[in-house]
């Protein structure tokens, strides 16, 4: 149920930011640390170190955050009402996965105005795999009246390592959910700030120009020579930091896993840009994915040798 004390412009079914705030309030109340987006370009909320790295190792972890996600190939010059090259994911990670995770998820839907007596919510098989992160999990896509509104995954492996314990991950497609609760057909018509009349700011006011500009950039102008070079640089920097980060020759403790992982994120995004520019052939594509995965695995191994990864200081 939507908090009845909320003024109209703060309601999750009237305002895009209201939706985000309602999810923050809900998950903060369940004991999550509410984080801010990671300050790098990523393809999905999963790339945030608060998920990828924190999913590894034995320590408990609960976090929620919004992550702007970049999918260069999905740009449509602002002409498609449902597809964006930049959109928001709401990400929740709970480690170990609580036994009532499904109930928690359903309660969060009620908190943003989805009445479970009125709407048909279903858990439909959808196993998740990220070849670039060397990660996979089992779970569902969550349907509300036939529309996929979230991904629900029990991580089994990340960066090539078994998750022990397993973390539960929820990913809400914020624009889609907002369109649904606001009853809007075009993403650019979403009410962003919940105000009406002169004060109303739409999603289009905020992002339409950016979608057009970035589509041009992603498909036509992104400097491919520079990007190829950046990929190479990120890859070698990651290797360098990983090597330099070991405390000593015994390689039992690592002191620089996160900076190395930043380079892995960088390489992944640069690859996505190159892919959107159509300069990577089918065969090369596979080898780039493998190269990023190797970085992710090495970063995962380094993370497991840190304190937060479960290796206490000597």
């Amino acid at each position: 149920m939507i908090d009845p004390k909320l003024p109209p412009h703060m309601r999750p079914d009237k305002s895009f930011q209201g939706l985000i705030l309602a999810l923050h309030a809900f998950w903060a109340d369940k004991g999550c640390v509410v984080l801010q987006p990671y300050d790098m370009e990523v393809g999905a909320g999963t790339f945030h170190p608060a998920t990828t790295l924190r999913a590894l190792g034995p320590l408990p972890w609960k976090a929620a955050y919004v992550q702007p996600s970049r999918r260069p190939k999905d740009g449509r010059y602002g002409e498609n009402p449902n597809r964006l090259q930049h959109y928001y994911q709401y990400q929740v990670i709970l480690k170990p996965s609580p036994t009532d995770l499904q109930e928690l998820y359903l309660a969060s839907l009620e908190a943003i105005g989805i009445d479970l007596k009125l709407h048909d919510v279903r858990f439909v098989e959808d196993d998740w795999e990220s070849p670039t992160l060397g990660a996979w999990g089992l779970g569902w896509e969550c349907w509300c009246d036939g529309m996929e509104v979230s991904q629900f995954t029990y991580f089994q492996q990340v960066a090539g390592f078994e998750c022990a314990p397993v973390a539960g991950e929820l990913t809400y497609g914020l624009e889609r959910l907002a369109m649904y609760v606001q009853g809007v057909e075009n993403v650019y018509d979403l009410n962003f700030n919940g105000r009406e009349g002169d004060e109303k700011v739409t999603y289009g006011d905020v992002f339409l120009q950016a979608e057009k500009e970035y589509s041009r950039h992603n498909f036509e102008h992104a400097d491919t020579a520079m990007l190829f070079e950046q990929f190479r640089m990120a890859e070698s920097a990651a290797a360098k930091y990983l090597e330099a980060g070991w405390e000593d020759d015994s390689k039992t403790r690592h002191l620089m896993a996160q900076p190395a992982y930043d380079q892995c994120i960088k390489a992944s995004h640069v690859f996505n840009l190159l892919d959107a520019r159509g300069v990577i052939s089918v065969t090369e594509r596979q080898s780039y994915i493998l190269r990023v995965r190797e970085l992710a695995k090495a970063c995962g191994a380094a993370w497991l040798a840190t304190e937060a990864g479960g290796t206490p200081a000597a």
Partner: peptide
């Protein structure tokens, strides 16, 4: 799959979903 607290230990019960 494995799930929950028990999945921290090797040999934890596996089922199709929790």
């Amino acid at each position: 799959m494995r799930w929950g607290k028990a999945s921290a230990q090797p040999g934890a019960l596996r089922w199709v979903r929790p």
